[in-house]
Simulated scan of single mutants.
Amino acid sequence: MRFPENVFDLVGGEDAIWSDDHAGLSDETLRVTGPRGEFFIKRGPVAVAEHERLRWLKRWADVPDIVAFEDEVLVLAEAGWRSLERKSAPPEAGALMGGALRALHAIPVEECPFDERLDVKLARAADRVLAGLVDPADFDDDHAGLTPEEVHARLLAERPAGEDLVVTHGDFTPANVLASPSGEVILIDVGALGVADRYVDLAVALRELDGPAAADFLAAYGLAEVDEAKLAYYRLLDELF
């Protein structure tokens, strides 16, 4: 994979170590370690989408520093904070995630220029299914045996009557929330951020959390009762992304 010369030199050039072997980061991301520090690099439409959203979101939340953006290549600084993914999560992970999501969902919807409502998501999902970009082998156990086409048909048939719109992260997993020792958080992998139903985030978060962590998450978020039908719907939707 070739990169603009300025980007290549910025992260250490031939002296840097380039790796796609990393836990908790999306497949489109490279980790680069070199004499000038540690960076994460994305390229293509994913990088463009994330660059736009990072520039907008930094007004409202802590996000990674943008080191460079050139020719659809995005370079982000390593924050040095720990991920909240399950295998290394601190006891307060659920509460940290709930507080972070509550703050994100409190951003005024009218301020957000990115549309991720169901009309947009379902159309994008249809394109992914048609292009063969959905691997049913990755489906959760609840959806094992379904084809991508069957999942999309169910999503159309079972579409909720309305949407409770907030500014959503779009992939709100423990791996995409970093925490400092003092309890501050940074949101990463925000390329799917946009206005959508709050259950886009709640469904993914609660799929990843269980037991006390899930209870702490809901308490910090401020949700006393969960809409199980919406949880199931948006978990099904996530299978196509």
Rank of each mutant, 00 (worst) to 15 (best):
R2A: 01
F3S: 04
V7G: 00
V7Q: 00
L10D: 04
V11G: 03
G13R: 01
D15Y: 11
H22Y: 13
L25S: 09
S26Q: 13
E28W: 15
T29P: 01
V32F: 12
E38P: 06
K42S: 11
P45F: 02
A47V: 10
E52S: 12
R55M: 11
R59F: 14
D65K: 12
D65Y: 02
E72P: 04
V73Y: 03
L74D: 14
L74M: 14
E78C: 11
G80E: 02
S83F: 02
L84G: 08
E85R: 11
P108V: 12
E110R: 14
E116Q: 09
R124E: 10
R128P: 00
D135W: 05
D135P: 00
P136I: 04
D138C: 06
P148M: 03
A157N: 10
A157V: 05
P160A: 11
A161I: 02
H169C: 01
H169W: 00
G170V: 11
D171P: 03
N176D: 06
P181F: 05
G191H: 10
G191T: 04
L193N: 07
L193F: 13
A203N: 02
A205G: 09
R207E: 15
E208I: 00
A213E: 13
A219D: 11
D227N: 10
D227H: 10
E228S: 14
K230I: 03
L231H: 08
A232Y: 06
